[in-house]
């Protein structure tokens, strides 16, 4: 395939990227507006950033989002890794197939259906045990773990297929207990996929609004839920400021992960380190 693009193709890409980024950049621009109108740019100010950071509810929501994301992704990664191991080695066809089919359901279902189905479960259980107001942190944690698990399992399972099945057997022959074999052979083999699954689960949790919205209670809000209630009013420039902060954070994170994954860069870094140690 020819590896150079025509001018038309380049123009097309530029146009689409402008369309994708223009709304975000306009918001960032107006986040520095000293008045709250979008009709005039009254002058540069960081007023809306100040308002955003002094809004205790938003700060609390941000903390909640992080706590929820860390907890749910750690739990779902551990539970998912163990489940993937068990499922891979399982020889009970019907069991394996039915678990895999169920695993696919939350990925295919619209988020809103997953959200209300879990909400109804919690409300139903609440009715059974006669407790009102069941929705809160624990229901959100359960919901987040549930929608992260399929991604974790489907990230890890394919890796097992490329693994030599005699590796663990060899470990056992050489005197490992099955548990030791798992930690010394299997786990190192799948660790890159586990990390990828963890990162994916973490970002899914940070970003989720729809499912959280239905299973959340009034006293535990996450940032997306906070954004939703804030944008119910029409013009809120502190949301522009928030968009700007999130945009910059996402951008920097993506660049950093790209650099970290970049072989050339790592190579250069290694060489520079060697050179430095030689001169030292």
């Amino acid at each position: 395939m020819k590896k150079n693009l025509s001018v038309k193709a380049k123009l097309y890409m530029v146009l689409i990227f402008i369309l994708l980024y223009a709304p975000i950049f306009v918001l960032i621009f107006y986040s520095f507006n000293s008045s709250n109108s979008t009709s005039v740019f009254a002058g540069f100010s960081t007023r809306w950033y100040g308002e955003l950071f002094s809004d205790l509810k938003t700060i609390a929501a941000f903390k909640n989002t992080l706590v929820l994301a860390v907890l749910s992704s750690v739990i779902s990664t551990i539970l998912g890794t163990v489940a993937a191991t068990g499922l891979h080695y399982s020889r009970t066809k019907w069991y394996k197939n039915s678990v895999m089919t169920i695993t696919n359901i939350p990925m295919m279902n619209p988020d809103i259906v997953t959200g209300i189905s879990m909400m109804l479960l919690f409300v139903f259980i609440g009715m059974m045990i006669k407790v009102s107001g069941v929705l809160g942190f624990s229901t959100m944690l359960i919901a987040h773990i549930t929608f992260e698990l399929p991604y974790v399992i489907l990230n890890i399972l394919p890796r097992f297929k490329s693994m030599d099945k005699f590796l663990t057997e060899a470990a056992c022959d050489l005197g490992c207990t099955p548990v030791q074999a798992f930690f010394k052979v299997t786990l190192p083999y799948i660790k890159a996929e586990i990390l990828a699954a963890f990162i994916m689960a973490f970002t899914l949790s940070l970003d989720d609004f729809v499912i959280s919205y239905f299973v959340s209670g009034p006293e535990f809000q996450t940032l997306p839920i906070r954004i939703y209630s804030m944008t119910k009013r029409r013009v809120t420039p502190d949301m522009y400021a928030l968009s700007a902060i999130i945009f910059v954070a996402v951008f920097v994170l993506l660049i950093l992960t790209n650099i970290a994954q970049d072989e050339d860069f790592r190579e250069r870094l290694r060489k520079r380190r060697e050179r430095r140690s030689m001169t030292a």
Partner: peptide, 13 residues
């Protein structure tokens, strides 16, 4: 990058 920004903020923009 836009995908990682919450969709609420994108729709709001």
């Amino acid at each position: 990058v836009p995908m990682w920004m919450n969709f609420l903020l994108r729709a709001y923009a």
